[in-house]
Design a protein around this nucleic acid. Sequence first.
DNA 1: GCCTTTATTTTCTGCTGTCAATGAAAGAAA
DNA 2: TTTCTTTCATTGACAGCAGAAAATAAAGGC
Lengths: 393, 393
Amino acid sequence: MRSTSPTEAFPAHTPAASQIFTTVLSHGPLTRSEIAGRTRLSAAAVTKAVRPLIEAGYLVEDIAEDARQPVLGRPANPVRVDGGRALFLGIKVTGDELIAVLTDLCCRIRVARRVPLTSREPKAVLTSVAGLAQELLTEADGFGVQVRGLGIAVSGDVDRAAGVVRYSPFLEWRDVPLAELVATTTGLAVTLDNDVRALTVAEQWFGAGVGLSDFALVTVGAGIGCGLVVHGQVVAGAHGVAGEIGHVAIDPAGPRCHCGNRGCVEAIASDPAIVGRIREVTGASVADATEALALAHDGDPGAREVYARAGAAIGRGIATVANLLGPERVIISGEGLAAYDLFAEQIRDAFAAAAFGSAADCDVQTRPLPFEEWARGAAATAIQSFITASDAR
Amino acid sequence: MRSTSPTEAFPAHTPAASQIFTTVLSHGPLTRSEIAGRTRLSAAAVTKAVRPLIEAGYLVEDIAEDARQPVLGRPANPVRVDGGRALFLGIKVTGDELIAVLTDLCCRIRVARRVPLTSREPKAVLTSVAGLAQELLTEADGFGVQVRGLGIAVSGDVDRAAGVVRYSPFLEWRDVPLAELVATTTGLAVTLDNDVRALTVAEQWFGAGVGLSDFALVTVGAGIGCGLVVHGQVVAGAHGVAGEIGHVAIDPAGPRCHCGNRGCVEAIASDPAIVGRIREVTGASVADATEALALAHDGDPGAREVYARAGAAIGRGIATVANLLGPERVIISGEGLAAYDLFAEQIRDAFAAAAFGSAADCDVQTRPLPFEEWARGAAATAIQSFITASDAR
DNA sequence: GCCTTTATTTTCTGCTGTCAATGAAAGAAA
DNA sequence: TTTCTTTCATTGACAGCAGAAAATAAAGGC
């Protein structure tokens, strides 16, 4: 009794149904008339599209609504997504470990797992991924619900449509058709995407990007990444590269970056850059970001100065994005956010100084990023694929 | 017998018809089956959508096709847009003059005019614009075809949907509802847009951006501007600001910019910046861009160096766009292109150095920009409005 | 019990785009 | 010359989606 029995398709064949479902998915319980208003569909169209979704169990009516204030007229009947109706897997592949989550249809994490990666060879990674997927599928059996898809997130140049990792520096891969490999091994519908884009999808559907047609997500940590949503769609770039805020050069006199250039944001504000610079400045033997952070929190002026410069670099990078795209919001996230108190002020100041005109009106937010979040992003892409799969266009 | 008699609507009520028309407009003569292939519609749908467009005279069949090579099967019957079926006006408003063109439906310029602006007061500008429009309307009478729309392009923060100039530094305007004012004065359907975005629309529909879903247009001249097309749509920015490549800061030690920041691309590579810098470096009394150019072409090493630096700045700016958006193509244009031989190499070198990974695969082109081109962009927005006006969604 | 108000559903209708068959205009073959 | 083949184009039947209007439902107030 595996939970991966033959997949029945998601019953949203029309654009309207698809749009309605994602609206409810993102905006929580909504009454039919609210849905009609948001989607600009007629109430009749909503009713018709909602019915099969309820019959299939993907939507449920919230009947027991106690806390509603007495209003005039027939009380509205909110509808919400039944998260428990389907499960999804998300796996983030890094250079040295796999992070996996089992989520429900609302992308809430049910189970999380982490396993180290012993080899970066595609074959070995495939085996690990398949093993981890099997493990989570067994867990999923306990919920009595099918797992309907597996999302995989890999950093680097990833072709989602083709399911191929074109080039991943961390894994040292070129043109690995990972989606197909994992699909044949696990029997699941596999969606492969770039890790930052996957996180952006999660944010767009389930996070701080809900309802926005233009926003940016900036991740700070071992690298500096950026996912962009323009016109309501994640930007993928004509050549597979987009959102490389880490390699936006902000200072020709800055430190050399591993990309060969000088003064990239990543060469100033990534964890390794900060650690290296602190070592250089203070002479202390700082091993990693945690120690660097501790030193700065201890009040070491040299270390604090390094963080301040990093913050300024990030702020300038964000301002560049804002100047070019004019997003409604920028969400800053990532492991590097642990040092937020050390560079928050500089980010804001540098952003405010470098943002041009009303680009400065852009709302800059921060969001903590638990380690499973990357894997959750992968799961979000799987959910997205599942929902839009049956959509003709 | 004014050519602005009551406007009959464009007979493309369905998305398919609209899509088909714009495809033919951009890609020149196409047979019905080619249209079906490009638009991914069925041949039947094309036939049905094309008929009313032919009946209304917007499309015509190219019957006299002599140069066709003998092919098997029934000869294809190409269809093209009858440019002469409708006329449009485009007016670009700068700080000290108006540039106006009369174009046909294919955005080919029929008449061009330039008049100096004596005052920047909204009222005075309105009078000048209306007068110029009337003048061109009279010209249009000679063609015996109606003028179906007027496009106005203004630099600064322009809200196209509302038809309002939110803020224009050159004109020193704030919240001027220019579209409505001109519409009531001239009786024409008026489309108001930012100048660079207008130029981008022209490029997208009639220029080097045809068929591309992601490209950037960079204009070099008195300012450095950038129009972006992402996912097939011109980026407008959530707050009305987008494409401000001129205020991307590339060097914290660079010259101060009028925006208050340091090292903006515009502070290094705009005409005034170049002129100022050449004066500073060479001590020569250079009055304007033309003299600066002459000096550099005479071989003055100081002047040439200034142009080289400008080229490098532009190249870095373009690389930033490419890193963030991964466009398929970047089109460089603008009056500043007159100096292209002086900085072409630096643009390419700086771009190649600063573009990350396959972002460097982006095709960087240059296109001369005659002075009427800005006004033609305005006309293009009017054509766009005319065609999509009847489109329900 | 009736009215008002708001939410939802039903019924009907218009319209779009697809399918499959048919017509048209060539060159090729008999 | 006649017939075939090939490719384009057109036609008519049809399915399906979404909108409009009207009906129905579910409250609260009187």
